[in-house]
Structure formats: C-alpha cells, structure tokens
Amino acid sequence: MTPLVQAEQAVLGALFLDPRQLIGLSGWLRPEHFDRPVHAALYAAMLKLRAEGHLAATAGADGPVPLAWITDTVQEASGHTRGLTAVFPHLLVSACPRPEHAPIYGRMVLEGAIHRSVALHAGRLHQAALADLRRGSVDETVHHAQVLSDVLVELARVWGTEPRPVAPPDAYSLHPGRPHSVADQVLADEEFLLGCLSSHSEQLLDLVHWLRPDDFIDPGHQQIYRALRALLHRGEPIDQLTVLWEAQRRGALSDGTLDTDRVQRVCDPLVSGAAEHFGEQIVNASLVRTAATAARQVGALADHEALAPGQLLDYALYALGPLEDVRRRLRIAQGIEPGPSHADDRPGGPPPSSRTDAALARSHVADGSPVLAPTPSRAAPPARHNRRSPS
C-alpha cells in the first residue's frame, strides 16, 4: 500500500472519528483529489451531509460522534460507488494514526492529486500533439496546451502559492527528448519558403518578427534563415551568393551542415510564392513539436514524487515557456495579436542606422552601382606587403 493510499484512509478515518474537522477541510480539499473512487465517494457524501446540516458535522456538535454519522455517510456514498460495506468505515478508522492530524493527511492527499493532475493533462497534451503531427493541424494542441497552463495556475492557487516559472536544478533538468518524425511536406514547405525569401527578400519584413530559426526542423534550413535575417539586419543585398557567403561566415559549410550546391538550390531565384502562408505553416509545425516536447518534460517532472507541489508547478510552468512563445508568435502571424512595429525597416521610414550605412557602403556607391574601387570618402583596405605588382 502506497503512502498516498494510507493518507486517504487516514483523513477519512479522522473525519469519521471527528466530523467537525470538515469545517477546516471543506474549503480546499475536494472529492476529486482522492485517487481511490470509494474514498472520493465517502468524502463527497460527508460534504453533502454537512451541507444539509447533519448534526454530527456542525460546529456546535459536542460529545461522542453518533453512529448515524457513519451509517448515513455509507448510505449516501453507496449510491455513487459499488462494493461499499458497513465494515469499511471501521477499517478507515483503524488506519488513522492521530485523528487531530486530519489537516496534514488532507494536505498529503492534495499533494498526490496535484502530481496526478499535472501528469494527466501533460499526457493529454502529448497525445493531442502526436495526433496533430499526423493530421498537420494545431487545433487540439492549442486547446490542450491552454488547458494545461490553466490547470497549473489553478493548482498553484489551491496549494496557496504564486504561479511563477522557475528553472529546475540539474537533478530535474529538462531534456529535449527524442526527435519527432517529420512529414516530407514540412521539409518541402521550409525549402520553398527559403526560396521565396531569397528571391523576394522584401517578404522577410513581414515574417522576421514572428518566424524564428528554431521553427525550422532541418538544421540546414535554420542556418539559411539565420543568414537571411543577418543580411536583412545589416541592410545588405540578398541573393544566392550573399546567402552562401553569410552561411560560410557562420561556419555552416565547414561543419557540414550545408554545402554550396544545396544553398544555391534552396535559394533558387526562380522560386516565387506567398512567403507569409508558408511561414505560418512552419510555425504551426513548430508549435506542435514544441508542445510534444514540453508535455514529455512536464510529465517527467510529475513522476518525481520527491518534488513538492510548489516546485512541480513552477518547474512545469518553466517547461511550458518555449511553447507559450511559439503560441504568441503564431497569434501574431495570424493577426490575432499585434506584433512589434518594424516601420524602421521599411522604405520611407526613419534614416538607417550607422550599422546599415556601413553595410550599404561596403556594397554600393552613391549611385547604386557595385563598388569596384575605393572612393575618396572611403578608405582603402590596407595593402598586403607580399602583393605582387602586375607584370
């Protein structure tokens, strides 16, 4: 028999011996907090009898507990559970070490309920995410993610703590988990989007504030998107060669993540399409993958019986942080939530920054033609001492 079952028996035994303790327990301990159905039915029966004014459970009750309290409780509970006999309450009474410790026993029951509830809703989120991965949708994932978040906040209120995300210590570190299977369509959408952004870089302005490199599941696609963002940020031209050069500068070619042929194939200048639509599809897929990972992490935390409820809830909220970030960015992409202003990036906005000026100066002269030689206003790079004179 587990300590949790013993705690459920002890608190019910204490209430059979001293039903007046329901006055202090009824405000926070609920029937659904009991794991055993028969225990939940008995506690619900006690609450109902007290609400109906049973003399044994009132504040003014004094003297020995009447036998009617036990028989009435059993009779009421028998209508909601099977196999309950008149002997069962006596077994609960004998399992109670100290009746006056009922609040402590009740707190043990609540602690077990918190772990069970977190594990239950994390499991539902994980199943919803796996189903959405197969369907290519996000509706069930978004729903169950919100439910889990609300449950964590409500459980924190019941436990009496302020819900706040806290990073767990190394002993409870949150590991990414096994990689998810990826549909070929997701990879195709990623590649097509990068082609659209490379050939029509003005579309980056509409995506850069809500589409992140980590939303791409392919490491090579992540690096190409990072290169595109870097070029946009510096105000430099975007084409096959500039993206390739930026990817090389970031080490993506030397570490084998990308190669020249692949970058040029992905950044095909002939690709054209609505980048915003494909960007939203990629964020959708990222949300579902992030939800599956977060659900596994929260479920693993709930399985740690040594975690106090306050710690479990704080660590679980922290694990949901990346998921909430993707949900927020998806709402921005869908126009449900306003995103940060990027007026500074658009033509006709405020003057470019000194960084953008310097980047443009490295690429073009004043009339827009390519830089072929240093101008009087621009210093030439230092000459190499071993450079040979043309013959």
Rank of each mutant, 00 (worst) to 15 (best):
S201K: 02
T73Y: 05
S198L: 10
L270E: 12
A131M: 04
Y105F: 12
H233Y: 13
T293Y: 02
H304F: 09
P3W: 13
D239K: 00
L360Y: 12
D259K: 01
Q223E: 15
H143R: 12
L91P: 00
D345W: 11
E8Q: 09
A383L: 15
S369E: 12
L49M: 11
P169H: 02
L55G: 03
P64Q: 03
P37H: 10
I224H: 00
S117H: 04
V186T: 13
A68S: 14
A77H: 02
L323H: 05
P338I: 10
E32C: 05
D325C: 02
T293Q: 15
V371Q: 14
Q222N: 10
A359N: 06
V147E: 09
L133I: 03
E280F: 02
C267K: 01
E32K: 13
I238A: 02
A380M: 10
S369Q: 14
E280T: 12
V74E: 06
Q146G: 12
V298I: 10
L313P: 07
H277P: 00
D139N: 12
H364C: 08
S354G: 01
P19L: 07
L133V: 01
W210V: 05
Y318K: 05
Y172M: 03
Y43N: 08
L211Q: 07
G235T: 04
T242I: 01
L12D: 10
L244I: 05
A122Y: 06
D150G: 15
A119V: 03
P31D: 15
L270T: 11
A40C: 06
A77M: 07
L193K: 11
R327N: 08
I282A: 07
G195E: 11
D72F: 01
V182F: 04
G310F: 09
G349T: 02
W210K: 07
T257M: 02
Q127C: 05
D344C: 03
D303R: 14
H115I: 02
I224M: 14
A56Q: 02
A227L: 06
